[in-house]
Amino acid sequence: MLKFLTRTRHHGKMDITDILSWLWLTLGTAVIAIPIAWAMLSSLKTEAEVNSFPPSLIPQSTVNTQVEGYDKDLSVWKWTQPNGEIKNVALVRRIGIKATVVDIDNPEKTLQVPTSEITQLKDVNFQWQNYTDPLERFDFFTYINNTVFVTVVATILTLLLNSMAAFALSKYKFRGKNAIFMLILSTLMLPLSVIMVPAFIVIVGLNLADNLWGVIFATVATPTGVFMLRQYMLTIPDDLIEAARVDAASEFRIYWRIVLPLCAPALAVLAIFSVIWRWNDFLWPLIVLSSPENYTLQIGLNAFQGQFSVEWHYILAMTVIALIPVTIVFLVLQKYITEGVAGSGVK
């Protein structure tokens, strides 16, 4: 009986480790989510509100109304009268601690009230212009275009070239195959930061400096992609390839009609990674691209925040634009991404 009781108690009760665990998870989630959420909320505020302190949580804006007899819209204020009555009034002007207001329902009459008795009315308001303005007034449309171009072209080329190399390294016997594979594998650990200076000089030599193709070509041959696809292709039985040979398929057709379709799952994972890499890429485009009409979104955004460092309403809106595609990709494909990372240890 006692045993039975203690067992149920033990199962029902959260012990200290459980509590600590959940505390950690909640805290961690908050630490991760708050800065992002804060940037998102702020990106929808008006310029005035972005720059006001202390900040408001929800994007708001002042309420304005048209009052008969006044050319301009007047802002609406809440007037708490000394007798406790509350009334909405429109502010005409304010001088020192005295404000001239007008009763909205009765516009002929103006009143003089102390400013301490009135507070401005605010409405929830999303400032979508923060998103549209930079696209129209600054070059962000071009930046996005360039990024999409680089992302799409580089991803397609990555899939094609890496799968071809993986095909050769997994399904053919030729002299030097292992040496080539080891050579590719050894670059897995070679970071761009070590070779960025000469790599740029190569780009200059190829006349690809300040050119989107310079960004694309240098990143297309990835050891990660070759390695990942090769591992996958090793699981495709050689019989299939020989059957296709007997079926009069040329080697190129075997690649195109048999091997590529069969690699679809691995190609999908590589495509996801490739899109994320290219969309987020910073250091290499920073080195290669020099004129604003060639900037990618990341470079453009960085340049913009350096140049217009006070225009936070625009900076934040464009930051959100930059994080949205990856976020959507992640929300839809999180399972494949986390498993792909855990499985291959690449990022």
Binding site: P237, D239, L240, E242, A243, V246, I258, P261, L262, A264
Partner: peptide, 13 residues
């Protein structure tokens, strides 16, 4: 020639 493989080697896709 035509060949029938032990594993059949049918194209799975």
């Amino acid at each position: 020639i035509a060949m029938v493989f032990q594993s059949y080697a049918l194209y799975p896709h």
